[in-house]
């Protein structure tokens, strides 16, 4: 098994923002090109996110974007980080997921997230506070459809696609362990937190792989990248995040704290320094690294340069970590 087998690339979002504007038809075509490069180099997966009804056009239909990539690639796995399960119709999701897994030759990795933006739930006529119940009900329906419940033929003859539970809340960890899913952890966790979560997941019987998003930037430009990530996160938090008793930009100090925490997790520097941080993550019990440097403000040439550096300079240095 090569080291690339446990490294995927994250996170395509298809955003067109003030900081990084792009025509959406271009962004989708480039996603295909990016994934083809990752496929050629031997990465394990590409991961795409989901949000809806926002000015930047964040991809609201990640499975359809992945279907496009499936048609252009041979072996790379196609992951959602995250597919917002409570926001989808269960029967439609079961059909869509089965079709994608079938057409891609069993390459689907379903990262399942709750979603948190009230306007997304409201646009679809759903209550955000019902999202936990919807998550379980929809996953039940999806799994039943995959298993061929109700006397119907299973929509796919393959083993059911792997499911990864997104998040870090105790409920998410318990749900993953209970349902036999993997975990897909956010990039904001400290190594101690990662160790504690993995331990708790394993104690509860969780046996599937644990993945984690990790942000890096290899070589020159790390500081600038971190500064731009900071602005990216500030825009996102300011527009979207509900704090204890205020919302978004109305709580600048809380936003600054969250953003600083997010940015502190970015591993920058030369290949050996970046590899060291990734080795620590693997040593903390993580099985799959979803490595992120793809943001809407990173130009495609720079993105492809980072993909090459990661594959050729960083990943070979991960050998033996997490053993």
């Amino acid at each position: 098994m090569g080291e690339l087998d446990r490294v995927g690339l994250a996170l395509w979002t298809m955003q067109s923002t003030a900081a990084g504007p792009g025509l959406h038809r271009t962004l989708y075509r480039r996603f295909g090109e990016d994934a083809q490069l990752a496929d050629r180099l031997g990465f394990a997966a590409v991961w795409i996110g989901e949000h809806r009804v926002w000015y930047d056009g964040w991809c609201p239909a990640p499975l359809h974007a992945l279907a496009y990539v499936a048609g252009l690639t041979e072996r790379i796995h196609l992951g959602t980080a995250m597919y917002l399960v409570p926001q989808h119709d269960a029967d439609g999701a079961a059909r869509t997921l089965a079709q994608l897994d079938e057409l891609s030759g069993g390459r689907l990795e379903l990262g399942a997230g709750l979603g948190y933006r009230d306007p997304e739930f409201d646009a679809l006529g759903l209550q955000r506070n019902q999202r936990g119940k919807l998550m379980d009900a929809n996953l039940d329906a999806i799994e039943a459809a995959w298993a061929g419940a109700g006397g119907e033929q299973p929509p796919t003859k393959r083993p059911a696609p792997r499911i990864w539970m997104g998040g870090m809340a105790p409920q998410a960890i318990a749900r993953a362990a209970r349902r036999g899913y993997g975990l897909l952890l956010p990039q904001t966790l400290s190594l101690d937190e990662v160790r504690r979560i993995v331990e708790s997941y394993r104690e509860q019987g969780g046996a599937a792989p644990v993945g984690m998003l990790r942000e890096i930037w290899v070589g020159e430009g790390g500081e600038r990248h971190a500064r731009r990530v900071s602005l990216h996160l500030t825009e996102e938090a300011g527009s979207w995040w509900a704090m204890k008793d205020s919302f978004g930009f109305a709580a600048p100090e809380q936003i600054a704290k969250q953003v600083a925490r997010g940015v502190s997790g970015i591993a920058t520097g030369e290949a050996d320094a970046v590899a060291e941080r990734l080795r620590d993550t693997l040593d903390a019990g993580v099985d799959h690294l979803a490595v992120r440097f793809a943001f809407e403000f990173v130009e495609q040439a720079a993105l492809h340069d980072q993909i090459h550096r990661l594959a050729e300079d960083v990943v070979p240095l991960l050998a033996g970590a997490g053993a």
């Binding site: 067109s16 056009g57 609201p60 933006r117 306007p119 739930f121 646009a123 209550q127 019902q130 919302f247």
Partner: peptide, 23 residues
């Protein structure tokens, strides 16, 4: 059958009068 946005009282943050499909 549908109201878009639904304006459910439980969805308290950033209530909208209109939505926009993006992209």
């Amino acid at each position: 059958h549908w109201q878009v946005p639904a304006n459910l009282p439980e969805n308290e943050w950033l209530p909208e009068e209109q939505v926009r499909l993006m992209p």
